[in-house]
Amino acid sequence: MSINLKKGQRISLTKDNQGLSKIMVGLGWDPVKKGSGGLLGALFGGGAPDIDCDASVLMLDANDKIKDKNDIIYFGNLTSKCGSVRHMGDNLTGEGEGDDEQIMIDLNKVPANIQKLVFVVNIYDCVRRKQDFGMIQNAFIRIVNMANNQELVRFNLTEQYSGRTALFVGEIYRHNNEWKFAAIGEGTNDTSLKDIVQRFA
C-alpha cells in the first residue's frame, strides 16, 4: 500500500522492501485551467504559451556537490554515465492524467560516491513567458517498485507556490545502508536548471 507523505517527512524505501533496486520516480502536475479570454481568446486561441515544466535529477556526493556535469540528468542528458538514472523524456505541457515525466533508477547501480539524488522541477523559459508555479496545480512525486509495479510512496505538493519558478520536490539518499526518501516541497526563484546547479557547484 502506498504511503502518503507530508512536507518534511522521511521514509525508508529499502527497510521494508528487501532487495528493492529498480524503481520508477514519477512526477506530475496540471496547468491551472485558463479562462476563455472572451472574444479575443476565442479568435486567437488565448495567446498564452503552455507551461513547460522540466524535471531533473541531481546526483550529489557526500558534501552535497555535483562533481561531474554527467551527474545532472535532464531532457538534454537523459542517462547518467553509470547507467543508474534514466530520464524517459520531456513532457511539454503537463496535459493528461498520471505522470508527466518518469525517471527510472537502479539503486544497485548508483556509484558509491553518490550520496543523494535530488529531484527538481523548473519552468522552461519562465522569465520571458512570465510563468510561475502559481499557474500549476496537483503537483506530486511518487515512487514505484518496478518489480511488481507497486506504488511505495506519494507526496502531493499542496502548498501555494505562486511567484516561485523552481521546486525542490524530494530526494532519495543513503542512510545507514538504507535508501530513504525525503519529501521536500521547497519553492525557489531559480529561473533555470543552470541556476539550480550553481547551488551545488
Rank of each mutant, 00 (worst) to 15 (best):
G76W: 00
G76T: 10
N77F: 05
N77E: 03
L78M: 14
L78T: 14
L78I: 11
T79Q: 10
T79E: 09
T79L: 01
S80D: 07
S80H: 09
S80G: 12
K81D: 15
K81V: 15
C82D: 15
G83H: 09
S84I: 10
S84K: 10
V85K: 10
V85R: 12
R86K: 14
R86S: 14
R86A: 10
H87L: 06
H87M: 02
M88D: 12
M88V: 04
M88W: 01
M88R: 13
M88I: 05
D90R: 01
D90G: 08
N91P: 01
L92S: 10
T93L: 04
G94V: 11
E95V: 00
E95M: 07
E95D: 11
E95K: 13
G96K: 04
G96V: 06
E97R: 08
G98M: 05
D99K: 13
D100G: 14
D100H: 08
E101V: 04
Q102H: 06
M104N: 08
L107E: 10
N108V: 01
K109F: 04
V110P: 03
P111R: 07
P111Q: 04
A112P: 00
N113G: 07
N113F: 13
I114W: 05
I114P: 05
I114C: 00
Q115P: 03
K116G: 00
K116P: 00
L117F: 02
V118C: 03
F119W: 02
F119A: 00
V120H: 02
N122D: 14
N122F: 01
N122Q: 10
N122R: 02
I123K: 08
Y124E: 11
D125S: 09
D125G: 01
D125W: 01
C126I: 09
R128S: 09
R128T: 13
R128Q: 12
R129G: 03
R129T: 09
R129Q: 14
K130V: 10
K130L: 06
K130Y: 01
D132L: 11
D132C: 12
D132V: 09
F133N: 09
G134E: 03
M135G: 04
M135L: 07
M135T: 01
I136K: 04
Q137M: 06
Q137Y: 02
N138M: 02
A139M: 15
I141G: 09
R142I: 02
R142Y: 00
I143L: 05
I143P: 05
V144K: 13
V144H: 06
V144E: 07
V144R: 12
V144F: 06
N145I: 04
A147V: 09
N148L: 08
Q150I: 11
E151P: 00
L152G: 02
L152K: 06
L152Y: 04
